[in-house]
Design a protein around this nucleic acid. Sequence first.
DNA 1: ATTGTTGCAAATATTTTGCATTGTG
DNA 2: CACAATGCAAAATATTTGCAACAAT
Lengths: 129, 129
Amino acid sequence: MSAIRHSKQRDAIKAYLLSTTAHPTAEIVYEHLKKEFPNISLGTIYRNLNFLVEHDEARRLNCGDGFDHFDGNLSPHNHFFCRDCGQIFDLHMQEIDHIDVLASAGFSGKIEEHVIYFRGLCENCLKKD
Amino acid sequence: MSAIRHSKQRDAIKAYLLSTTAHPTAEIVYEHLKKEFPNISLGTIYRNLNFLVEHDEARRLNCGDGFDHFDGNLSPHNHFFCRDCGQIFDLHMQEIDHIDVLASAGFSGKIEEHVIYFRGLCENCLKKD
DNA sequence: ATTGTTGCAAATATTTTGCATTGTG
DNA sequence: CACAATGCAAAATATTTGCAACAAT
């Protein structure tokens, strides 16, 4: 077996993901980490973000804007993507896991999960109009 | 105003999207179109797929596999993504638009729509195990 | 004749990877 | 000390774009 080691860089990336609800991209994580590790490289950011996702310590979000976003909040929740400013917000709403049952009816495969993005205008962008 | 012209290439791309439920990527559309237009270029494929999406003649799907997929079926329906073979299937299920209402409760922005991907194993991949 | 569209090639943009070096356990 | 992780740079991948030639109206 191969032992998993810690590195200050990985710990800092995870701590940053846990400290924010902004769902940052790799580039934004990079800009943030550079304050603490001026020589850190984007390769390290990507390697660690992938590591965290594979080890269930972070989630990858794909909202269709061309960037992977990352979320350190592992509790079940859904996301809202603002079509104007592009920000991703957490939604605090009741569970809707019953939709998996509705999807299973009339489908011959096995439905294990769902990924949802709600879209529209966030509060700020609503005001701007 | 600028007049929209037709080209044989664009018409063939749209016809192909309407003829299949396989949710092809740009590359797959390209491979298919080459039979009819041996000199067609990927640039033309991408330009036309973007054109069709922008003019509401096709939909772009982002299931997280790193490729944009395209769907000529504009009627409201949801998708299933097989985590094993990567294929995308149409789901024929009852409407679940009420989840937008559930998401709106406790959110201060305006929710206009949602994008869902159900994930799991398709019938074929279930059998393979 | 005008101008939207194409094919080709070069350019972007995001993410991944090879490798010598560094750092953790 | 073994080998996982890093920094750097180059590579890989998917998509976009500039431009001269072509084609639709």
